[in-house]
């Protein structure tokens, strides 16, 4: 398939899907809390309203960081869905995150400063797991290339069970849900006012929301990588995981950042490294 077609489909479809998923998320959350919840298209209404608001800034060029954050998230997702190198995807993802954090620092406000520090700790917490996921995928398919991984034709889950579980563990961090929503928290939860996004308003906030949709789709997309032979099974698992994360969000309280860091690294170490260790031993036994 032509790369440009995929690219354009990606850029148009992702915000739509992301927004719908976010709306669905809010409805499910509300129903779990015995409420009714907003209409399904509420996120789109929100974004439209935000674009119509006045733009207030605290420091010059703070919004530019967010624009670049969104830009590089689009680049990362495009890389991923067009079948690029997964390791590069992880690093580009980190780049996008860094722009976001730097934007938070730039606003020079106490709340966003703490938000940035905590976002940084979050990044440090999940980054090793992402790289280990890449390594695990390589060890089973001998390629870092997403296109190659998807053509592998055999189920990867049994061999990568540990890594999959570890990835699920850090998923709430990325999706900004409890118990790991340290820095800005998803919808309606306050966290040190609004954490890293405290000083962003109006159109920039809309961009942040859209950026979150892109992030969501990318993260969920990585789950499909574990099921290259049966994409429909992968999609089903994705839906199940999505629901699971929302359930966890509503059941757990937010943890302290020290606990988040320790728990994530411990999970990464035991599940991720353990999995790789087992895979290495299997490889040695086979050869």
């Amino acid at each position: 398939m032509n790369i440009f077609l995929i690219l354009i489909a990606y850029i148009i479809l992702t915000p739509l899907t992301g927004g719908l998923l976010t709306g669905l998320d809010r409805i499910i959350t509300a129903r779990m809390q015995s409420r009714i919840g907003p209409p399904l298209l509420q996120p789109f209404y929100d974004v439209a309203k935000l674009f119509s608001k006045e733009n207030l800034v605290v420091r010059k060029a703070q919004n530019l960081f967010i624009i670049f954050h969104l830009l590089f998230l689009i680049v990362t997702g495009a890389l991923f869905f067009c079948g690029g190198d997964f390791l590069l995807v992880v690093f580009a993802f980190a780049l996008a995150g860094v722009f976001f954090i730097l934007g938070g620092y730039r606003t020079s406000s106490p709340y966003s400063h703490i938000g940035s520090e905590r976002e940084l700790i979050q990044m440090m917490a999940y980054e090793p797991m992402l790289i280990i996921t890449a390594i695990g995928l390589y060890m089973t398919t001998h390629s870092f290339n997403v296109f190659d991984i998807m053509s592998a034709g055999k189920p990867l889950l049994p061999q990568l069970l540990g890594i999959f579980l570890g990835f699920l563990f850090i998923l709430p961090i990325k999706m900004r849900k409890s118990p790991f929503d340290l820095s800005m928290s998803h919808h309606a939860h306050q966290e040190l006012v609004k954490g890293i996004t405290t000083e962003f308003s109006g159109p920039t906030l809309a961009l942040l929301e859209i950026a979150h949709w892109f992030e969501l789709i990318l993260i969920l997309g990585i789950i499909i990588l574990f099921f290259p032979n049966n994409v429909w099974l992968g999609l089903a698992v994705e839906c199940a995981v999505f629901f699971l994360v929302i359930l966890v969000d509503n059941t757990f309280a937010r943890l302290r950042w020290q606990t988040v860091l320790k728990a994530s690294w411990l999970a990464t170490f035991i599940l991720g490294m353990g999995n790789i260790f087992i895979l290495s031993i299997l490889k040695i036994c086979h050869s």
Binding site: E54, L56, V57, V58, N63, S109, T198
Partner: peptide
């Protein structure tokens, strides 16, 4: 753009 103070 309009400049405001940070939230305190």
């Amino acid at each position: 753009t309009k400049y405001v103070a940070p939230y305190l």
